[in-house]
Design a protein around this nucleic acid. Structure first.
Lengths: 148, 148
DNA sequence: TATTGTTATACTCTATAACTATA
DNA sequence: TATAGTTATAGAGTATAACAATA
């Protein structure tokens, strides 16, 4: 199939194809854990932000609180995270449980191996450049990607 | 929300965030057309590969022929593409209809504006570098190791 | 009034399996 | 046997709308 200039010159298209490639491999790397890359990301965020609430987690993942609810249900059903009393009576404080921490360590190692394999044709300098360029995508007025 | 080194150093994570950013903006740019960026891509592929069959279209989009079927149904229902007799009695030859071509031209222009806005902080050289680096993601090629 | 969690519901996208008709 | 299209069904992921409890 021919893919002409209209597609090849769109950065969004190239990013989408790259994402599909990376995501598919990362998902395969996690097949033993029955968790998607996105759910691993959620575990990392909970680990690194202990006591965060579901709405904040959703915001960090760019999903709404209803979707975050489902996500936390799945992680809680697996015994990986726990809902604890939060800063007021409305909010949950999310906590990573020991079993979640153990499994997460293995998951991150597996995904890191996948990431390394998929980027092995790039030098360290090129990888740094790629990180920088990706981080600078977005409208001119926008802030960095971890800004609320 | 803190996003520690585990996330920030994964290329797959950065690509996923970049894709979400680009895809969301492109989707908004297409809101008048009631078609997703992926469906616009399908229209482009049909336009640039007239007479292709549904299975080949699916392969180019990395979806299976059942999913390609649904996609073509939607594009056909809108009067944008047509199934014509193919090279044998099993296959369809997909064709972009005049109305599809007219709308596609506007869609590509809108997505191109979105793409330009989301990449405006990158110079022409940097854009070329980004294209190159994204294209080089994936497992090592060319040698006997685990090439399929 | 606004916010958090929750539930119910629905939509998009994709996949698998099976069937048909061709090859 | 293998392939293209098709259909039915299912699953993941997400969204909206509403509600209760709380702020």
């Amino acid at each position: 199939m021919k893919q002409g200039a209209d597609l090849q010159t769109l950065v969004g298209y190239r990013v989408q194809r790259a994402n599909l490639l990376m995501e598919t491999d990362a998902r395969a790397a996690l097949s033993d854990f029955d968790l998607s890359p996105a759910k691993m990301t959620a575990l990392i965020l909970i680990r690194d932000n202990p006591g965060c609430d579901q709405t904040a987690l959703g915001r960090a993942l760019s999903i709404n609180r209803s979707s975050a609810m489902k996500l936390v249900n799945i992680l809680a059903d697996k015994g990986f995270v726990e809902r604890r009393p939060g800063r007021d009576l409305r909010t949950n404080a999310l906590a990573l449980l020991p079993e979640g921490a153990r499994q997460l360590e293995k998951m991150v190692a597996a995904v890191r191996r996948s990431d390394a394999r998929m980027t092995q044709r790039l030098s360290a300098d090129e990888l740094a450049t790629l990180h920088d360029l990706l981080a600078r995508l977005g409208p001119a007025t926008g802030l960095s990607d971890d800004e609320g």
